[in-house]
Design a protein around this nucleic acid. Structure first.
Lengths: 181, 181
DNA sequence: TCGATAAAAATAACCAGTTGGTTAGTTTAT
DNA sequence: ATAAACTAACCAACTGGTTATTTTTATCGA
């Protein structure tokens, strides 16, 4: 790996932490450079602006999330559990996603990869409904919406590990109840 | 009503819109004053700082929400429906709540009124569980967490009114399934 | 009812510190 | 030798917050 690539990587990591902590408006370019042990100018050399640095951070985050947590429509409680675990293990993900929704959604179009992943999940749910594995009393996009909503909320405030595991169990049972045919 | 009180009221309204749109870090004091058709100095006369202006906005929002939407543990689907309607009718509420969670939670203690309202909801759920009206397979705080999570997510992106009503129906049925004994 | 007066409220100019972003020059690696 | 990478000083625009001054409003004695 070239040295410049390593600097770029460090910048991306520092930017992720900074944006997760302060959001786009609250993030400081100088602070990112300092945390990455790099010069501010490097940010503008590798990324074009604060704006597109944020987009790079967001895109990478989405890509990793999609790769790490796949949905099996035949086991939605399990999907929610893995997603919750991923969120718990990567606390910056939910924060950056929230910041993005508040500060950026509506301006820039969502990453294509994210859009595709959502459509594929909806199709998977529809297929499972047709197969009778899960209830067909909800439209697929509503089901997905409800599952993601519960998963988010069950992770958000879990600080103590004991509480987190109890919360995760409740999440799994809630989704079992939700999708039962 | 005195004129100064009216100015204060206009500032509070303008600040609510500004903070909802841009969050605390992104909000601009000058813009709030301009939108309220007032002088910037008025903000510092009536509220102490940008920080405490935000807290005033948040506190008022919480107070109104608590007053407008009460929970009946015997009818949790109905509660979620009213809450969803309130969110839909007051789009700034969910946004400001999200900003607050990201930017402020952990620094300042949550408003006492909010804390009390949550405890009372948990107690109500526990009582309904004891009475056998709703399932006792979840701890009350988890049930509340899951209900609020689904409600949030079912409102968040509802733009078209037709979609909103379908989303609301799904929410109600989901909670019926969740709480059924 | 009027007019003097003091208190309250509104105004605009101002300030020091910070912001994202740039530039010109120096070091390092190939 | 030369291009890539790094550095630090710099900049104009903007930030939350303050101050001194003027305008408006309320009070009250005659």
């Amino acid at each position: 790996m070239k040295k410049s690539d390593r600097t770029k990587q460090r910048l991306l990591e520092a930017a992720t932490a900074e944006f997760a902590a302060y959001g786009f408006a609250g993030a400081r370019v100088d602070r990112i450079a300092q945390a990455a042990d790099a010069n501010k100018q490097a940010i503008y050399a590798y990324f074009e602006s604060k704006e597109s640095l944020f987009e790079a951070v967001y895109d990478e985050m989405v890509t990793r999330l999609i790769a790490a947590v796949q949905m099996d429509a035949g086991n939605l409680p399990g999907y929610a559990a893995s997603l919750a675990d991923y969120y718990a293990g990567h606390p910056e993900v939910l924060r950056i996603a929230s910041w993005y929704e508040l500060e950026k959604a509506g301006q820039s179009p969502r990453p294509a990869a994210s859009e595709r992943a959502t459509q594929s999940k909806i199709a998977g749910i529809a297929a499972a409904q047709k197969a009778g594995t899960i209830t067909d009393r909800f439209r697929p996009e509503h089901l997905l919406e409800l599952i993601l909503g519960m998963t988010r909320s069950s992770v958000y405030e879990s600080a103590a590990p004991a509480k987190a595991s109890a919360s995760r169990k409740a999440l799994v049972e809630a989704i079992e109840r939700l999708v039962r045919p």
